[in-house]
Design a protein around this nucleic acid. Structure first.
Lengths: 310, 310
DNA sequence: GGGTGTCACTAATTCGATTTAGTAACGGAG
DNA sequence: CTCCGTTACTAAATCGAATTAGTGACACCC
């Protein structure tokens, strides 16, 4: 395994020109006029030798590597649409010669060090996005989408005739920002609709604790007839608690999830939920980050997957 | 925002030495003798100026960046222990000044291009690991663990008195290698125990298809009394199908999962499963990759989380 | 035929950290 | 007093690609 890297110099020598010319040809340098014959020769030789540009050297020269960092430390890892978002982001960046570096953990100065160390082309920080709500951030519409998707979830319940609604949150500190935001959006939508204030409850510990939390909530708010989950996980926990408590679903209390996890349909009753096309957002985010035109239409709105629970 | 990077040259000037000396001090260069006074001064100045080494420049010089690539394209993303593995790997690499780049997609030449482009310090490819079973690979014992963990799952069923066992696989082409390996291990363990050959069935499409698959399986193999899931997802699908078919669990058929997903306990009956400490494997993998001593004891064996389903 | 332009390239510098080869300065031994 | 060895540094080369500032060699126009 001779770790002999083919450099631009090798290509230059083999095709009888200078490294500079090779660079001009391979990068389609607009300020240079190079005859088709030379271009073709250089391209052919590069392909023959299997030349691959050394990203590190290029990054040093250009001041930024072709890497995009995505920070999702404070978001639930399991979300189905987030997975789609990440996959599509990765794919689309790859199409433009970039790679995605996903950070799941957030030790703050560590992230700064990382950034200083690899000079990423861009950093997409979904955490800060959710927290600071800076409209300038290139997220492909993800954050605006969150408001719209929440609206789909809440309005569905309203259309079914429910009046007093609650949202089931999770006390996981890792996602409190997301939780606060979703709850906020939901509250505003209820106000728009002229419905009573949103109640909230928390689930997410043991099954027994969840059951106790749900029981005590229903006792305090007997007129609530529908519960929207922060995500499918929260909704399924509520569903399990209601089952254990013997509360009929959806007749006494309806439950709707958020973000269409594959397990929702396995439950009994099967979980009604909101499907979000994370992939399209990911694709758009990639293009925004690289200053490319969007190239495709804005993602469609979220859709309700109607099953038995609401 | 003056994006003025503090370079080694700046530190050198401010502390009255040459860049070379700064490098020697900051890297504890063993071949150099530098008096404590100078060391201290350089360190202090570097801290004051907020000097952060430029990873890209360093990578160019050293031939490899301080990045480790983890390829998990063909594994289920949702696995609880894999998440722990990845998190711990990331943490531990960070502790040694390295960053983890997780690849979820596997367009093969693309990965090669990525590797050529960023010169990672190491590549941990769990896919190839599972496929090629190369004992040299630095996975912190993950792959050996898989055999051991499978053993825990199968032996539990045997200890409960089950004789004819089946494994529920998933037809997802993304995980076929993992599936083949797990099935293989399970088969060998049954042989060791002197039990009949392992049966297999496939689930993973729609709920209806799963139900049909399970029903037809039970018809063909009425003497099978226990089903081990490839993972919790497969096990939960079997569990849902058995519920819909009215088959009593665990009385007629017992079900055990694998990899302790948080949703297993929400089901009714709650899913018995195998808990794997992925984090410890991740930590060990990180150290192996960087040629550091393990630093902690080998991970404990997997444990059975006993619930109602088996 | 001299001046101006374009064409087709190349030499040399740059990015920032590391490392090799080297050089003053000094102390001690012979 | 010279030679050797150590100490405490520094100059310069290196990694590979991108880019600026040129440089010949022509062609064309007046």
């Amino acid at each position: 395994m001779p770790d002999s890297r083919v450099t631009m110099k090798d290509v230059a020598r083999a095709s009888g020109v200078s490294p500079a010319t090779v660079s001009f040809v391979l990068n389609d340098s607009p300020s240079q006029t190079i005859p088709a014959a030379t271009r073709e020769r250089v391209h052919r030789v590069a392909a023959e030798l299997g030349y691959v540009p050394h990203g590190v050297a290029r990054a040093l020269r250009e001041g930024a590597s072709r890497i995009v960092v995505l920070n999702v430390a404070r978001l639930p890892h399991g979300g189905a649409s987030l997975a789609g978002f990440v996959d599509a982001l990765d794919d689309e960046l790859g199409r433009f010669g970039h790679a995605l570096l996903v950070r799941y953990r957030d030790r703050p100065d560590d992230t700064d060090r990382l950034i200083a160390a690899i000079s990423p082309r861009a950093v997409l920080d979904l955490d800060r996005l959710y927290f600071e709500a800076d409209p300038e951030i290139a997220d492909g519409g993800w954050i605006d989408g969150l408001a719209a998707h929440t609206s789909v979830q809440i309005r569905y319940l309203a259309e079914q005739g429910h009046v007093e609604l609650a949202m089931a949150l999770r006390d996981d500190p890792g996602i409190e920002r997301l939780a606060a935001l979703r709850r906020d959006y939901a509250g505003r939508i209820l106000a728009d609709l002229g419905l009573p204030e949103l109640r909230t409850l928390s689930v997410g510990w043991s099954v027994e604790d969840d059951r106790r939390a749900v029981a005590s909530f229903l006792e305090r708010h007997p007129s609530v007839t529908a519960i929207a989950g922060l995500d499918d996980d929260a909704a399924l926990r509520v569903l399990a608690a209601l089952r254990d408590l013997g509360v009929p679903v959806p007749d006494q209390v309806a439950v709707i999830g958020f973000d269409d996890s594959p397990l929702g349909e396995l439950f009994s009753p099967a979980l009604t939920t909101v499907h979000i096309d994370g992939a399209e957002f990911g694709r758009r985010a990639a293009r925004t980050l690289l200053d490319e035109p969007p190239g495709s239409e804005a993602p469609g709105p979220a859709t309700v997957i109607r099953r038995a629970s609401a």
